[in-house]
């Protein structure tokens, strides 16, 4: 499943996404794209070119776009709704909650520019809270893919599974973690490295950072387990328990506020089922700001070094 060598992807994530959506739409005539003036940002333009009658650009109206998508899905259409993550969640939360989830409809919400990947758009457009908001929606599945291979597979899964999904995405080129033929099971995390000292549970762009931290720890003789928790909700409780049983401590790593994101979800499982020392690497309850992704990862302590330090601190405390 894992690549021999981790390299920057040759294509952008948004391109991979749109390719996957077109592939699914070729097979299923009920799949449509709904955008809110984000065809270029979210990379969905090729879908509109391929299927001129199956793409609906609402204009800048997230609340209506979500509600409209929910109505579409009530007739059997499968809408993939695209918006910046901040607006798909913060702005349209009541619509996601009541128009989609409350009535068990079938809307696939793709929220762009996860966390620091919003980079030059700055604090107004930087979702550090989207997973936290969406975790409160009953029966909503939340996914954050680590690379384009996983992204594509997640599109396939969503297209073929009834229910409302929120997938936080990243439009940029990202380091490839997985082989092209890798397959994923939504709700079942990927155990990427076995270990016995400390377990690192990460999602999205932090999976690569976790793998880098694994190497740093290995050089010091520390055996780290690395888990890609691509499905934040429903969280894979089995693998959290497994990690807690095998290792002395757990570190979570997310490109998101540590409040109510991956770290909180893991903490809930640990505290209720297998109390274990936990350190959360993530944004410490701050607003985003403008800058390059690299700068922002340093600024908000989202690097492999931060994961490494958290792991070392854990092992010192246990």
């Amino acid at each position: 499943m894992l690549r021999q060598k981790f390299e920057l992807d040759s294509i952008e994530m948004r391109r991979a996404y749109c390719d996957a959506l077109i592939e699914e739409a070729e097979k299923n005539p009920n799949i449509v794209a709904v955008d809110v003036d984000v065809q270029y940002s979210m990379g969905t333009k090729p879908f509109y070119e391929r299927f001129p009658n199956r793409g609906i650009n609402c204009g800048i109206m997230e609340a209506h776009g979500i509600g409209f998508s929910a109505g579409l899905s009530a007739t059997g259409i499968i809408p993939f709704f695209h918006a910046f993550g901040v607006f798909a969640t913060r702005r349209a939360f009541d619509q996601v909650f009541l128009s989609c989830a409350y009535q068990d409809l079938n809307v696939k919400i793709i929220g762009g520019d996860a966390g620091v990947t919003a980079a030059a758009n700055g604090g107004t457009h930087m979702p550090f809270e989207d997973m936290g908001i969406m975790r409160n929606v009953p029966k909503l599945t939340i996914i954050e893919p680590a690379d384009s291979a996983m992204y594509k597979d997640a599109v396939k899964f969503m297209a073929n599974t009834h229910g409302n999904f929120y997938m936080r995405s990243n439009r940029r080129k990202t380091v490839r973690i997985y082989n092209d033929d890798a397959r994923f099971i939504i709700g079942k995390a990927n155990l990427l490295k076995e270990g016995r000292d400390v377990a690192i549970i990460a999602c999205g762009i932090m999976v690569y950072q976790a793998l880098l931290a694994w190497e740093m720890l290995k050089k010091e003789g520390i055996s780290a387990m690395v888990i890609d928790m691509h499905t934040i909700k429903p969280i894979d409780k089995d693998i959290v328990r497994y990690a807690a049983e095998r290792c002395k401590a757990v570190v979570t790593a997310e490109n998101h506020n540590i409040i109510n994101g991956l770290g909180s979800a893991v903490a809930e499982v640990l505290s209720e089922e297998c109390p274990t020392l936990l350190k959360r690497v993530g944004v410490k309850d701050e607003f985003g700001e403008v800058g390059t992704q690299e700068y922002l990862m340093q600024r908000f302590n989202l690097t492999a070094l931060d994961i490494y330090k958290a792991a070392k601190k854990c092992l010192k405390e246990v």
């Binding site: 609340a63 209506h64 409209f68 929910a70 109505g71 259409i77």
Partner: peptide, 15 residues
């Protein structure tokens, strides 16, 4: 919210 839902249903039926 109902108006958006209704328009979605109308559009979905139409296509």
């Amino acid at each position: 919210q109902g108006i958006s839902l209704g328009m979605g249903a109308a559009y979905g039926n139409k296509i």
